[in-house]
């Protein structure tokens, strides 16, 4: 059975959407990642225009992350105070990253820079997380303990705006998570991803938050980031396909519930090693992608979705006139 996507302008099999949504939702609930790095390429492979795929993916992440946030909230895994601080830092970083991309595009090297940044950052984060988690797992009984904050350097402890983040069990200056998130936001914006891949390890290793709380809090900030992106894409580019987003959400919300409940059966280090393996797999995939000779040197590009739907404005206006009269 296929379903017609009114904004994408094409029809697609329902099981592809449910399956892809379910897989990404599971990873989202389990690891606190949005899953855009996985879902957008799947949708593009299924023939959906890239801009519609990316914008609708943001919309479905709203559904998946709200489902997972609610589940994590009941499990006591969401630190709202930290989440709001991270959100503010992430949005600031994203805005700066957009400007950086503009400069890179003007210089003409943006895409190459993005590809190499992706491989280096993801590889470094995934690799270091994998090694650290493996060491902890080999540590036996110690591994069952959640990560605690490393001893904070004296200078950081003397920064102003010191706040207790009770849910995370850490005390930091608001400036520390804010500026760390600015950096993550810049990188995420340049790489075109949500940034949870970097956000979760940053919360665990640099802020000393327990892994489960880092996952829940990452989802909290992802929910608001993607809600903002969805609204902006709807009003600016008209590329959010609600039917596509809801079909994906049908799978991802259930997958997110399963993933979030699975976290109860996994230790922090086990969750981190899964996230590390995922990051390394994406890195390998990206590396193969730039080394192997492509079957086709052309691939659909971002841009306005109407490029793929040349007559939409005409029939839209005509249909709107009829609908408004009726």
């Amino acid at each position: 059975m296929s379903i017609f996507l009114p904004v994408a302008g094409i029809s697609i099999r329902v099981w592809i959407l449910l399956g892809a949504g379910g897989l990404v939702g599971f990873l989202s609930g389990l690891l606190g990642v949005g899953g855009g790095f996985l879902l957008t390429p799947i949708l593009m492979l299924a023939g959906i225009p890239p801009t519609v795929a990316a914008a609708s993916d943001s919309c479905q992440i709203v559904a998946a992350s709200s489902s997972a946030v609610a589940a994590h909230f009941r499990l006591g895994n969401v630190d709202f105070k930290m989440g709001i601080t991270l959100l503010a830092g992430g949005l600031t970083g994203a805005a700066l990253g957009v400007q950086a991309i503009k400069i890179l595009r003007a210089l003409g090297n943006a895409d190459s820079f993005i590809a190499i940044t992706y491989i280096v950052v993801l590889g470094a984060v995934g690799g270091s997380m994998f090694v650290a988690s493996l060491k902890n797992l080999r540590g036996g009984a110690m591994a069952s303990k959640v990560h605690r904050a490393p001893a904070r350097p004296g200078r950081l402890a003397r920064l102003p705006l010191q706040v207790d983040f009770e849910r995370s069990g850490v005390r930091h200056s608001l400036l520390v998570p804010f500026f760390l998130c600015v950096i993550v936001g810049i990188l995420a914006s340049i790489m075109g991803v949500g940034g949870a891949f970097m956000m979760v390890p940053m919360m665990v290793y640099l802020l000393g938050m327990p892994v489960h709380v880092a996952v829940g809090t990452s989802l909290f900030q992802t929910l608001f980031t993607c809600a903002g992106v969805t609204y902006m894409q709807s009003t600016t580019n008209h590329t959010v396909d609600l039917v596509l987003a809801l079909a994906l959400a049908a799978g991802s919300t259930i997958g997110a519930q399963v993933g979030a409940r699975m976290t109860r059966f996994l230790r922090g280090d086990q969750l981190l090693i899964i996230l590390a393996i995922l990051a390394l797999l994406v890195t390998v995939k990206m590396t193969v992608g730039i080394i192997a000779t492509p079957a086709n040197v052309l691939s659909p590009s971002g841009g306005h979705a109407m490029l793929y739907w040349p007559h939409a404005p005409e029939w839209c206006r005509a249909a709107w006139a009829v609908w408004a009269k009726g």
């Binding site: 009114p6 904004v7 709203v62 609610a70 969805t230 959010v240 809801l246 959400a249 939409a312 609908w323």
Partner: peptide, 29 residues
């Protein structure tokens, strides 16, 4: 109807998309 709404009432469409998605998520939970 949905395609028309996304073009002609983009702001309403955007807010609806966010709310419907969030409600779907909380509803499933």
């Amino acid at each position: 109807w949905l395609a028309i709404l996304s073009e002609s009432r983009a702001s309403l469409y955007g807010i609806s998309a966010v709310l419907i998605s969030a409600l779907a998520g909380f509803g499933i939970d």
